[in-house]
Amino acid sequence: MTELSININGEHIKADVEPRLSLADFIRDRQRLTGTHLGCEHGVCGACTVLMNGEPVRSCITFAAVADGSEITTIEGFDQDEPMAQLRQAFHENHALQCGYCTPGMLVAARDIVTRLPDADEDRVRLELAGNLCRCTGYVGIVKAILSVLEQRRI
């Protein structure tokens, strides 16, 4: 077992974990924050994307033990976050989700786009989204939603 001290959504947590436990499984099974989803467990689909020290990472291929000392924000931890509130509303209005499974990871990735790349155009948004798979929507609504939030934030 490895000792782990970590901050998740503002809460300090100390735990003993098996070294092989992924950050995603720690978040889901140990902390019971199940909004973070597993879609492939090999770092391709992006459903497990969370913020680690403010940057998006794949929690399925990051061991919990390696995340020691970090600050994690999961989809449940954005209630007071303005860009996320804008994105949630825009996703709702642009029909950017169907089954909802990719949505939490998609939103975390989208938040990174609208905060890191305020000038992104549609091509850039599509390029940046290439690391998050959605099987339902054809991405059209997602791209529209992100562009609309970028536009809002430029005003």
Binding site: E41, R58, I61, G69
Partner: peptide, 27 residues
């Protein structure tokens, strides 16, 4: 030796890599 783990992580999840010891350089 584990750097960022973005290549080793998937291989270990798939059990294509099964090291006995992982030396974590993140600190």
């Amino acid at each position: 030796v584990l750097g960022g783990g973005q290549s080793l992580g998937p291989m270990m999840n798939l059990r294509l890599a099964q090291p006995d010891v992982v030396l974590d350089l993140s600190k």
